[in-house]
Design a protein around this nucleic acid. Structure first.
Length: 471
RNA sequence: GGGGUAGUGGUCUAGCUUGGUAUGAUACGUGCUUUGGGAGCAUGAGGUCGUCGGUUCAAAUCCGAUCUACCCCA
């Protein structure tokens, strides 16, 4: 038996997803702790590629990378009331050190506000220290009670979190807008379409003034939250006493924001782009962008191998992440293998091509085969990768657009991302959630003109909400 | 939160009803022959049957608990 993908994406998305993350070797789920999977080399490399994209963008916007301890003392965690209420039920506790019970219990960070902010209070003294822009990429722990799923719902989370402090609300708002810009650049690289949706008051991050969810749509018709951007106002700076002295000598509390993302990004790339043959990686994410398969023939193996290695060197020189597969297995086996791994472009080189001075290109995303001049191979590879990148994003965007529909009744709802009028009253919001059996994701940040009525009470409104079943 | 299904070499699996020496495939190692969509032959190695406890002369098999995975419902 080969590593066939047995499940079809369109027939059983859930099974297909489980199968593909294991067979493509992104993760090993055999580690015997629930929700804690092993990052295998291939999956980890993809995660690292995503992390470097994040680092690049946040460094470029003058954030400083930090790394805070994993353990947080209970009393420090307990300072902001809403925050504890939100996370209380899902923290892992350290109650013993060696054989001794601890006087002050320690918890594994579910997120790092309560680790960082007591330190921020020491770091921020004057308006000259602001804005303070930091981020870290660390593991966080949440005791998920729902069904766990590789990359999508885990108990040990590979987490990016930026934390910023500002002189006032306006400056914090500027930060939120900067986060939107950074996100749009990143999502373009990852070929992930998304919507920025302002969460309802009853669904915002515990302790936040407001929360903007970054939501994408999976092929199953369910939404997946990829990240969130929060405006905290003074909600944390007051209990944690993060204060500065302004130009007039007055003491003020800082305004804070955060931005969080996780390995769900890997899950989204798998889910959105993958197909029945395996992964399909966007060239900007792929750790191998092009794989060379030398097609050897009896008596001529050296000649073909040499030509393949020359092509490899040339592409490497040209800055392409290229791999040459010289394993002693038949070409067909290699094709299946690299398709499963999602490598964007396959280059076949055999006697047949060499006689014509060509190289065979096979696109992973469309399966299209084409012949290209060997002379111009590195340029051709680069432009093909660019083309794939652009087309993958366009295709994904189109699927999300087609999976989004505006409805004016809560009856017989399709399994899609649904758009509808809402008066803004909590009572109607809850009604919508109950009757649709879906979650309100929120109101769009980008202006989407709407002039209609609340789907629940029928009053005229210009406000929209998006709802979906969440993954 | 409620319910259900399952766990046997790396992977998939037979055996379980009716307790008695562990089945096959695939992957893996070695050798030869092969190579444009999953190669063939030969040969070799690999398993305290998820874990803990109980019943028994004897447990993969029966009973209980637990862990893990997956599914359905809220």
């Amino acid at each position: 038996m080969f590593l066939d993908i047995v499940m079809k994406k369109a027939e059983d998305f859930s099974e297909w997803y489980n199968e593909i993350v294991e067979k493509a070797n992104l993760t090993d789920k055999r580690y015997p702790v629930k929700g804690m999977n092993v990052w295998t080399p291939y999956g980890w490399k993809i995660m690292q590629a995503i992390d470097s994209d994040i680092r690049r963008e946040f460094d470029a916007t003058n954030h400083q990378e930090v790394c805070f301890p994993l353990l947080i003392p209970e009393d420090q965690f307990a300072k902001e009331k809403e925050h504890i209420k939100g996370f209380d039920s899902e923290v892992f506790w350290v109650t013993h050190a060696g054989l001794n019970p601890l006087d002050v219990k320690l918890l594994l960070r579910p997120t790092s506000e309560t680790a960082m902010y007591p330190m921020f209070a020491l770091w921020v003294r004057s308006h000259a220290d602001l804005p303070l822009k930091t981020y870290q990429i660390v593991n966080t722990f949440r005791y998920e009670t729902k069904q766990t799923r590789a990359f999508i719902r885990v108990r040990e989370i590979h987490f990016f979190e930026s934390h910023t402090c500002h002189v006032d609300f306006e400056d914090a708002e500027r930060q939120v807008k900067e986060d939107f810009d950074v996100l749009s650049k990143l999502a373009e690289k990852w070929c992930i379409p998304y919507k920025l949706l302002k969460r309802t008051d009853w669904d915002k991050f515990p302790g936040a003034f407001y929360t903007v969810g970054v939501d994408t749509l999976l092929p199953s018709g369910r939404s997946l939250q990829l990240g969130s951007i929060h405006e905290y106002k003074e909600n944390f700076s007051r209990p944690y006493e993060i204060k500065y002295e302004d130009e007039k000598g007055e003491h003020r509390y800082v305004h804070q924001t955060t931005f969080g993302m996780s390995e769900r990004l890997v899950g989204a790339i798998v889910a959105i782009h993958g197909d029945d043959k395996g992964l399909v990686l966007p060239p900007a994410v792929a750790t191998v962008q092009a794989v060379i398969i030398p097609v050897l023939a009896k008596g001529e193996t050296e000649k073909v191998s040499k030509a393949a290695r020359e092509l490899y060197d040339e592409l490497k020189q040209a800055g392409v992440k290229v791999h040459i597969d010289e394993r002693d297995v038949r070409p067909g086996a290699k094709y299946y293998d690299w398709e499963l791994k999602g490598v964007p472009l396959r280059l076949e080189l055999g006697l047949r091509d060499m006689e014509k001075g060509k190289v065979t290109f096979v696109r992973r995303d469309t399966g299209a085969k084409s012949l290209h001049d060997r002379q111009n191979a590195s340029n051709e590879v680069r432009s093909m990768l660019e083309l794939i990148q652009v087309e993958m994003l366009a295709r994904a965007q189109k699927e999300m657009d087609e999976g989004t529909v505006t409805v004016d009744s809560l009856d017989g709802l399709p399994e899609k991302l649904l758009r509808m009028g809402w008066c803004g009253e909590e009572r109607c919001g809850r009604e919508i959630e109950t009757r649709s059996d879906r979650n309100i994701l929120g109101t769009p940040i980008e202006d989407e003109h709407f002039d209609g009525m609340c789907i629940s009470c029928g009053r005229p409104t210009k406000t929209l909400v998006y709802i979906a079943r969440s993954m």
